[in-house]
Nucleic acid binder design. Structure first.
Lengths: 105, 105
DNA sequence: TTAATTAATCGTAATATTACGATAAGTTAA
DNA sequence: TTAACTTATCGTAATATTACGATTAATTAA
């Protein structure tokens, strides 16, 4: 165990949960807020900004990338990260829709 | 480790992450959707609906209650669960605000 | 009272997450 | 080339999460 029984749930339920899980760590929220503020920056800047180790930040970036919420572009020996606006709009729509359905009727 | 370093983040970042984490399991999304559909129901009905064991559902309900998203009212030997609309409105506002700040500028 | 019902909690196993240091892999500068 | 730099990955430890069965606690029905 320790594993969610995803087969018991709808695709929508699993998708919402997966996104929420990715947003479910303060470092990842902080990373997103920082990227919004500076528009785009390299990994090292995020390490400085957040104050966790480089390897830990790299893991968080990987998770955000896995969910499609950010993009990373290699520029020489640096990697420039930014928000994936298209995906974040979809995520926003999914969550707004969910909350709307929750709050009425 | 295995523990988030919450002291490195703002109150807002921790709060958003905490809510998202609670929403980050398909069973909990399914429970919320079911409660919205039937308005309110007893724990046993949720167990039947979701198809996980009674103790597992009880744990998920506890987590949703901890975050304030649902309420449980004891009625004799049964416990009637329902959405905490006030709290969910706040949660909705927090997330809408976040996504709004993410998508523009 | 006793038995049945309902839900919470306990104990536990399996797996996931978080975090770090060390290392690898790649790029650039000297 | 060599050295420095940048980031990803590996290995690992600590803790958290998920799930279940068994038990407990409380209420109701017989």
């Amino acid at each position: 165990m320790g594993t969610s029984k995803t087969e018991k749930f709808t695709k929508e339920q699993n998708e919402i949960a997966s996104i929420a899980k990715t947003l479910g760590h303060p470092a990842r929220i902080a990373i997103l807020q920082h990227l919004v503020k500076v528009n785009s920056c390299i990994c090292g800047d995020i390490v400085d900004e957040i104050g966790l180790s480089q390897s830990t930040i790299s893991q968080h970036l990987k998770e955000l990338k896995r969910e499609g919420i950010i993009k990373g572009e290699v520029e020489g020996r640096k990697v420039c990260y930014c928000i994936n606006t298209e995906r974040l709009d979809i995520v926003s729509t999914i969550f707004n829709g969910m909350f709307k359905r929750f709050s009425c009727c």
